[in-house]
Amino acid sequence: MNYIFYGLIVLSIVIGAINGKLPDVVNSILTGAEKSVQIAFSLIGIMAFWLGIMKIAEQSGLVEFIAKLISPITKRLFDEIPPEDPAIGNIAMNFSANALGLTNAATPMGIRAMQDLQKHNIDRKTASNSMCMLLAMNTAGFQLIPATVIAVLVGIGYKNPTEIIAPTLLVTSFTFISAIIIAKIFQRFSPPQTQQSGGQE
């Protein structure tokens, strides 16, 4: 991440200078920083709402029930985590919300899952294997219905917007499964986490 952060910023300045866009690049620091805070603040309300709902789901045993339901699958993917841990239930809910395109609900569920996974993590500043797996599932972005894309297509008068659902589903399923397999392969070949040093990059 250090190299990528350095690379992105230095590359932007060098290329910006070549293109004569240096003023834009400098301005984008301010607008980017402003936008980050706006995003974070706009998340507060919906985050609070879903974290509240999720707390009810956890205390009522619903999360545990879901965890048990899908444990045959998750046992293999999250082998460091006990099969009936609330983390597993939250991961399942995060996945379902993502699949249905409910991003606002999916993110707080995913964050609950990350908090649960952190309890099993031996180095609190380094990602555990399970966290990397959850991130793999989320960055691959599995979705049953690409609602925003369909909305745009409807907006421009596309006659049959649902015809993109089948190809999208095919691509997103393939990518999702690949991401899980890739994460498993990385897990096998990356050095195991240790107390202090953590996994190396």
């Binding site: 991440m1 990350m114 380094t126 966290m131 690949s178």
Partner: peptide, 26 residues
């Protein structure tokens, strides 16, 4: 940023590479 940031993880290990590879595959 959001998932790791929420619990203060700074070293992403291979999670970034999995994400980028998934984008390329997609």
């Amino acid at each position: 940023a959001v998932y790791f940031g929420s619990i203060g993880i700074r070293k992403f290990r291979y999670a970034l590479w999995v994400g980028i590879l998934a984008d390329i595959i997609a």
